[in-house]
Design a protein around this nucleic acid. Structure first.
Lengths: 163, 163
DNA sequence: ATACCTGCAAATGTTTTGCGACTAA
DNA sequence: TTAGTCGCAAAACATTTGCAGGTAT
């Protein structure tokens, strides 16, 4: 099913109403394959549809989340971001701390071990979030070049451990 | 080294000053072995030392973070919490979505697989956060009892996957 | 016509900062 | 005496809500 159909279905099922702002916001949201903040989405929406207010984007994202089109994630820098979730199965995140690039990753072995870990504590797993922070290859090349020029090594061999 | 010594050293090294509020806040913070919000810590501090202001607790926690005594974590519910980090090695979190209890866990195999996963993308890992959400045994017993009484099953067999 | 939806502005909640008084050194 | 620190209040941000007018059904 297409995302627009998912939204329509949800709206009809709940006795809500179709509206242009909702279609427009969905269309812009889908066109941006990134994890964005409400502000960023609002800015993007306004470029095409200047009349739309912040509150509408806010409420519409909540609506999308309800019908499974997007989901909210809190990152370590405190920002709340929204990502596409319809047709996207579970994944974790690889985030470059230098350029900010995101990768969506999955490792089925890790997933299995998480289940095992949790069982040892008598838990029943509902969901999890795993964010891995590091430097991507491109950024390291840049860093190494800079280091070569200045003679100052910029990255340690180990990196720091999360507490 | 004791935590108080870590703080003293840091303060001296930076040319800052010793103060009663800092000692008092540290002492209360250390006495609470939980992941707490600024508000919660402030409330706890005020019970013993009524004069201390919110801003002081706020600034002091940032100071503690700087000298490695605590670290900030953002959870999925949007709250920012502080945990002891001095003398605590890296760990992940197991969180009961029903009673809110926290467990600190580590699985060395998962840690290894994270390294492997990241390398496949050309990344160099710096740190990570992994939070596992589920229901603890105690809560499930409660839930099952309630279900037996009402005849309505409360938890599904699988739970939901994070997006 | 009804009830939902929208944009605006204001309320709420949280994190940060400016400032005069205070205090360690 | 000097400069960092404190508590208060206000500023800065981000998130959420009330409301009057607009719109889909």
């Amino acid at each position: 099913m297409k995302e627009t159909a998912v939204l329509e279905r949800f709206i009809e099922g709940k006795g809500l109403r179709h509206s242009k702002p909702r279609e427009q916001i969905l269309s812009v949201f889908l066109s941006i394959e990134q994890h964005i903040t409400i502000d960023e989405l609002w800015a993007a929406v306004r470029k095409k549809h200047p009349g739309i207010g912040y509150a509408t984007v806010y409420r519409t994202l909540k609506l999308f989340a309800e019908c499974g089109l997007c989901s909210e994630i809190n990152f370590e820098d405190g920002t709340t971001r929204y990502e596409h979730s319809y047709g996207h199965s579970h994944h974790d995140h690889l985030i470059c701390t230098s350029c900010g690039k995101f990768f969506e990753v999955v490792d089925s072995e890790i997933e299995k071990l998480q289940e095992r870990l949790v069982k040892r504590y008598g838990f029943q797993l509902q969901y999890h979030r795993m964010n891995l922070y590091g430097t991507c290859r491109n950024c390291r090349v840049g860093i190494d070049r800079r280091a070569a020029r200045t003679g100052v090594p910029v990255h340690s061999g180990k990196g720091r451990a999360a507490s």
